[in-house]
Protein backbone atom coordinates (compact mmCIF):
# COMPACT_ATOMS: atom_id res chain seq x y z
CA UNK A 1 0.00 0.00 0.00
CA UNK A 2 1.36 3.43 -0.92
CA UNK A 3 0.39 6.75 0.50
CA UNK A 4 1.75 10.19 -0.18
CA UNK A 5 2.85 11.85 3.03
CA UNK A 6 2.57 15.63 3.54
CA UNK A 7 6.23 16.02 2.59
CA UNK A 8 5.49 14.50 -0.77
CA UNK A 9 7.53 11.29 -0.45
CA UNK A 10 5.86 7.93 -0.93
CA UNK A 11 5.37 5.95 2.26
CA UNK A 12 4.90 2.28 1.71
CA UNK A 13 3.75 -0.42 4.02
CA UNK A 14 4.06 -4.13 3.53
CA UNK A 15 1.79 -4.89 6.47
CA UNK A 16 -1.56 -3.24 7.08
CA UNK A 17 -4.93 -3.91 8.67
CA UNK A 18 -7.71 -2.63 6.43
CA UNK A 19 -10.99 -1.77 8.16
CA UNK A 20 -10.80 -4.78 10.44
CA UNK A 21 -13.31 -5.63 13.11
CA UNK A 22 -11.66 -7.66 15.85
CA UNK A 23 -13.68 -9.65 18.34
CA UNK A 24 -13.52 -12.62 20.69
CA UNK A 25 -16.82 -14.49 20.38
CA UNK A 26 -19.28 -11.66 21.05
CA UNK A 27 -16.86 -9.24 22.68
CA UNK A 28 -15.94 -6.68 20.05
CA UNK A 29 -12.57 -5.05 20.75
CA UNK A 30 -12.02 -2.95 17.61
CA UNK A 31 -14.45 -1.88 14.90
CA UNK A 32 -13.42 -0.76 11.45
CA UNK A 33 -9.80 -0.29 12.45
CA UNK A 34 -7.24 0.65 9.81
CA UNK A 35 -3.55 0.51 10.67
CA UNK A 36 -0.54 0.70 8.42
CA UNK A 37 2.92 -0.29 9.59
CA UNK A 38 5.34 1.98 7.70
CA UNK A 39 8.18 0.02 6.11
CA UNK A 40 11.46 0.31 7.91
CA UNK A 41 9.82 1.88 10.93
CA UNK A 42 10.19 1.11 14.60
CA UNK A 43 6.50 1.44 15.36
CA UNK A 44 5.53 1.57 19.01
CA UNK A 45 1.97 1.02 20.17
CA UNK A 46 0.91 2.52 23.50
CA UNK A 47 -2.43 2.61 25.26
CA UNK A 48 -4.10 1.67 28.54
CA UNK A 49 -4.57 -1.95 29.69
CA UNK A 50 -7.30 -3.73 27.79
CA UNK A 51 -7.51 -1.19 24.95
CA UNK A 52 -6.77 -3.82 22.30
CA UNK A 53 -3.03 -3.62 21.62
CA UNK A 54 -2.39 -7.35 21.87
CA UNK A 55 -5.56 -8.04 19.93
CA UNK A 56 -4.31 -5.86 17.07
CA UNK A 57 -0.91 -7.60 17.02
CA UNK A 58 -2.61 -11.00 17.08
CA UNK A 59 -4.67 -10.08 14.04
CA UNK A 60 -1.59 -8.84 12.16
CA UNK A 61 0.11 -12.19 12.58
CA UNK A 62 -2.93 -14.40 11.83
CA UNK A 63 -3.59 -15.47 15.40
CA UNK A 64 -6.99 -13.82 15.28
CA UNK A 65 -9.13 -13.75 12.17
CA UNK A 66 -10.90 -10.40 11.68
CA UNK A 67 -14.68 -10.78 11.61
CA UNK A 68 -14.68 -8.21 8.82
CA UNK A 69 -11.99 -6.41 6.82
CA UNK A 70 -8.62 -7.96 6.14
CA UNK A 71 -4.96 -7.88 6.99
CA UNK A 72 -2.76 -7.36 3.96
CA UNK A 73 0.86 -8.48 3.66
CA UNK A 74 2.82 -7.53 0.54
CA UNK A 75 -0.40 -6.74 -1.30
CA UNK A 76 -2.08 -10.06 -0.51
CA UNK A 77 -4.54 -10.94 2.23
CA UNK A 78 -2.69 -12.83 4.97
CA UNK A 79 -5.47 -15.39 4.99
CA UNK A 80 -4.33 -16.39 1.46
CA UNK A 81 -0.80 -17.20 2.60
CA UNK A 82 0.44 -20.65 3.41
CA UNK A 83 1.01 -20.64 7.16
CA UNK A 84 4.78 -21.17 6.99
CA UNK A 85 5.20 -18.69 4.16
CA UNK A 86 3.65 -15.92 6.26
CA UNK A 87 5.72 -17.04 9.27
CA UNK A 88 8.89 -16.44 7.27
CA UNK A 89 7.82 -12.82 6.75
CA UNK A 90 6.22 -11.79 10.05
CA UNK A 91 7.33 -12.94 13.50
CA UNK A 92 5.72 -12.46 16.88
CA UNK A 93 6.85 -12.33 20.47
CA UNK A 94 3.58 -13.10 22.31
CA UNK A 95 2.74 -11.37 25.59
CA UNK A 96 2.86 -14.70 27.42
CA UNK A 97 4.51 -17.95 26.36
CA UNK A 98 5.09 -21.38 27.76
CA UNK A 99 8.11 -23.63 27.53
CA UNK A 100 7.94 -27.43 27.46
CA UNK A 101 9.16 -29.16 30.63
CA UNK A 102 12.93 -29.43 30.82
CA UNK A 103 13.76 -27.70 27.53
CA UNK A 104 17.18 -26.02 27.30
CA UNK A 105 17.70 -22.45 26.16
CA UNK A 106 19.44 -23.47 22.92
CA UNK A 107 16.71 -25.97 22.07
CA UNK A 108 13.95 -23.44 22.71
CA UNK A 109 15.59 -20.73 20.62
CA UNK A 110 16.01 -23.33 17.86
CA UNK A 111 12.26 -23.86 17.75
CA UNK A 112 12.00 -20.40 16.21
CA UNK A 113 13.52 -21.92 13.06
CA UNK A 114 10.45 -24.04 12.35
CA UNK A 115 9.09 -21.93 9.45
CA UNK A 116 12.40 -22.38 7.64
CA UNK A 117 12.32 -26.16 7.96
CA UNK A 118 10.41 -28.77 6.04
CA UNK A 119 9.78 -32.49 6.16
CA UNK A 120 12.95 -33.06 4.18
CA UNK A 121 15.02 -30.06 5.16
CA UNK A 122 15.42 -30.38 8.90
CA UNK A 123 18.17 -28.73 10.98
CA UNK A 124 20.76 -26.96 8.81
CA UNK A 125 23.92 -24.86 9.32
CA UNK A 126 21.84 -21.75 8.54
CA UNK A 127 19.54 -22.64 11.44
CA UNK A 128 22.49 -23.09 13.74
CA UNK A 129 23.97 -19.73 12.76
CA UNK A 130 20.64 -17.94 13.22
CA UNK A 131 20.25 -19.46 16.68
CA UNK A 132 23.79 -18.53 17.71
CA UNK A 133 23.35 -14.95 16.48
CA UNK A 134 20.01 -14.55 18.26
CA UNK A 135 21.41 -15.90 21.53
CA UNK A 136 24.49 -13.69 21.33
CA UNK A 137 22.41 -10.59 20.52
CA UNK A 138 20.11 -11.11 23.51
CA UNK A 139 22.96 -12.02 25.85
CA UNK A 140 21.75 -15.54 26.62
CA UNK A 141 24.59 -17.42 24.89
CA UNK A 142 26.12 -18.32 28.24
CA UNK A 143 22.82 -19.86 29.31
CA UNK A 144 22.61 -22.07 26.20
CA UNK A 145 22.65 -25.39 28.02
CA UNK A 146 20.53 -24.32 31.02
CA UNK A 147 16.94 -25.57 31.39
CA UNK A 148 14.57 -22.67 30.74
CA UNK A 149 12.46 -23.43 33.82
CA UNK A 150 15.47 -22.72 36.03
CA UNK A 151 16.01 -19.16 34.74
CA UNK A 152 14.92 -15.88 36.27
CA UNK A 153 11.95 -14.07 34.75
CA UNK A 154 14.16 -11.58 32.97
CA UNK A 155 16.54 -14.21 31.61
CA UNK A 156 13.56 -16.19 30.36
CA UNK A 157 12.10 -13.11 28.63
CA UNK A 158 15.39 -12.62 26.77
CA UNK A 159 15.29 -16.25 25.68
CA UNK A 160 11.81 -15.71 24.21
CA UNK A 161 13.08 -12.62 22.39
CA UNK A 162 15.97 -14.74 21.08
CA UNK A 163 13.48 -17.31 19.77
CA UNK A 164 11.59 -14.57 17.90
CA UNK A 165 14.87 -13.19 16.49
CA UNK A 166 15.96 -16.66 15.37
CA UNK A 167 12.89 -16.73 13.13
CA UNK A 168 14.70 -14.04 11.07
CA UNK A 169 11.65 -12.33 9.66
CA UNK A 170 11.86 -8.93 7.96
CA UNK A 171 8.85 -7.84 10.07
CA UNK A 172 8.79 -8.56 13.78
CA UNK A 173 5.99 -7.80 16.24
CA UNK A 174 6.78 -7.75 19.97
CA UNK A 175 4.11 -7.64 22.65
CA UNK A 176 5.64 -6.00 25.73
CA UNK A 177 9.19 -7.25 25.11
CA UNK A 178 10.53 -5.42 28.17
CA UNK A 179 8.33 -7.08 30.81
CA UNK A 180 10.31 -8.70 33.64
CA UNK A 181 13.51 -6.91 32.60
CA UNK A 182 15.43 -4.66 34.95
CA UNK A 183 15.98 -1.12 33.70
CA UNK A 184 19.43 -1.82 32.25
CA UNK A 185 18.21 -4.86 30.36
CA UNK A 186 15.17 -2.91 29.13
CA UNK A 187 17.46 -0.32 27.61
CA UNK A 188 19.77 -3.05 26.24
CA UNK A 189 16.86 -4.73 24.54
CA UNK A 190 15.45 -1.49 23.12
CA UNK A 191 18.92 -0.57 21.85
CA UNK A 192 19.14 -3.99 20.21
CA UNK A 193 15.74 -3.45 18.59
CA UNK A 194 16.79 0.01 17.39
CA UNK A 195 19.93 -1.55 15.93
CA UNK A 196 17.89 -4.22 14.14
CA UNK A 197 15.60 -1.50 12.87
CA UNK A 198 18.50 0.53 11.47
CA UNK A 199 19.75 -2.65 9.79
CA UNK A 200 16.46 -2.88 7.91
CA UNK A 201 13.92 -4.77 10.02
CA UNK A 202 10.47 -3.33 10.42
CA UNK A 203 9.49 -3.58 14.08
CA UNK A 204 6.25 -3.15 15.97
CA UNK A 205 6.43 -3.18 19.75
CA UNK A 206 3.84 -2.67 22.45
CA UNK A 207 5.43 -0.72 25.31
CA UNK A 208 4.01 0.61 28.56
CA UNK A 209 6.76 3.06 29.39
CA UNK A 210 5.73 6.25 27.57
CA UNK A 211 9.19 7.80 27.75
CA UNK A 212 10.81 4.74 26.21
CA UNK A 213 8.07 4.77 23.57
CA UNK A 214 8.73 8.35 22.54
CA UNK A 215 12.49 7.85 22.65
CA UNK A 216 12.69 4.73 20.50
CA UNK A 217 9.65 4.97 18.20
CA UNK A 218 10.06 6.29 14.71
CA UNK A 219 6.30 5.95 14.42
CA UNK A 220 3.92 6.07 17.36
CA UNK A 221 0.42 4.59 17.49
CA UNK A 222 -1.69 5.61 20.47
CA UNK A 223 -4.73 3.42 21.09
CA UNK A 224 -7.81 3.94 23.18
CA UNK A 225 -10.86 1.67 23.39
CA UNK A 226 -9.85 -0.37 20.36
CA UNK A 227 -9.38 2.66 18.11
CA UNK A 228 -6.42 4.81 17.15
CA UNK A 229 -6.39 8.02 19.17
CA UNK A 230 -3.29 9.46 17.53
CA UNK A 231 -0.59 8.37 15.13
CA UNK A 232 2.62 9.81 13.76
CA UNK A 233 6.11 10.87 14.77
CA UNK A 234 6.34 11.08 18.59
CA UNK A 235 7.24 14.79 18.54
CA UNK A 236 4.18 15.58 16.45
CA UNK A 237 1.53 13.63 18.32
CA UNK A 238 2.64 13.57 21.92
CA UNK A 239 0.94 16.27 24.02
CA UNK A 240 -0.25 16.55 27.64
CA UNK A 241 -3.82 16.66 26.33
CA UNK A 242 -3.37 13.35 24.51
CA UNK A 243 -1.92 11.64 27.59
CA UNK A 244 -4.71 13.02 29.75
CA UNK A 245 -7.35 12.00 27.25
CA UNK A 246 -6.02 8.47 26.65
CA UNK A 247 -4.63 7.49 30.04
CA UNK A 248 -6.55 9.91 32.27
CA UNK A 249 -3.18 11.02 33.61
CA UNK A 250 -2.58 14.71 34.40
CA UNK A 251 0.98 15.49 33.32
CA UNK A 252 3.35 17.92 31.71
CA UNK A 253 5.41 17.01 28.67
CA UNK A 254 8.96 18.38 28.57
CA UNK A 255 11.88 17.77 26.30
CA UNK A 256 13.97 14.73 27.19
CA UNK A 257 17.33 16.29 28.13
CA UNK A 258 19.22 13.42 26.49
CA UNK A 259 17.29 12.52 23.36
CA UNK A 260 15.25 15.66 22.79
CA UNK A 261 12.09 13.53 22.50
CA UNK A 262 8.90 14.21 24.53
CA UNK A 263 9.21 13.26 28.21
CA UNK A 264 6.12 12.73 30.33
CA UNK A 265 6.17 13.98 33.91
CA UNK A 266 3.02 13.13 35.90
CA UNK A 267 1.79 16.05 38.00
CA UNK A 268 0.36 13.95 40.81
CA UNK A 269 2.50 14.17 43.94
CA UNK A 270 0.63 11.36 45.68
CA UNK A 271 0.73 11.45 49.46
CA UNK A 272 2.83 14.64 49.58
CA UNK A 273 -0.04 16.67 48.28
Amino acid sequence: MTEISPTGEARTSRLAAEAVTLAYDRRVVSTDLTVEIPDGSFTVIIGPNGCGKSTLLRSLVRLLKPSSGQVVLDGRAVSDYRAKEAARLVGLLPQTSQAPDGITVADLVGRGRYPHQGLIRQWSPADKEAVDRAMAATGVADLASRPVDQLSGGQRQRVWVAMALAQETPLLLLDEPTTYLDIAHQIDLLDLLAQLNRAGSTLVAVLHDLNQATRYATHLIVMKDGAIAAEGAPRDVFTPELVHDVFGLPCVVIEDPVSGTPLVVPTSLGHRE
Binding site: R88, L89, T104, V105, A106, D107, G110, K128, E129, A130, V131, D132, R133, A134, M135, A136, A137, A141, D142, A144, S145, L165, E168, P170, L196, A199, G200, S201
Partner: peptide, 22 residues
Protein backbone atom coordinates in the same frame (compact mmCIF):
# COMPACT_ATOMS: atom_id res chain seq x y z
CA UNK B 1 13.47 -15.01 1.77
CA UNK B 2 16.79 -13.64 2.90
CA UNK B 3 17.03 -12.70 6.52
CA UNK B 4 17.25 -9.02 7.14
CA UNK B 5 18.45 -9.29 10.71
CA UNK B 6 22.01 -8.16 10.97
CA UNK B 7 23.11 -9.36 14.35
CA UNK B 8 26.66 -9.41 15.68
CA UNK B 9 28.56 -12.65 15.22
CA UNK B 10 28.18 -15.17 18.02
CA UNK B 11 31.33 -15.70 20.06
CA UNK B 12 32.85 -19.16 19.71
CA UNK B 13 32.24 -20.11 23.34
CA UNK B 14 28.49 -19.58 23.00
CA UNK B 15 28.48 -21.67 19.87
CA UNK B 16 30.28 -24.49 21.64
CA UNK B 17 28.01 -24.28 24.66
CA UNK B 18 24.96 -24.47 22.45
CA UNK B 19 26.27 -27.32 20.35
CA UNK B 20 27.34 -29.09 23.54
CA UNK B 21 23.94 -28.70 25.17
CA UNK B 22 22.05 -29.96 22.16
Amino acid sequence: MSASLDLPEAPASAEQARAGAV
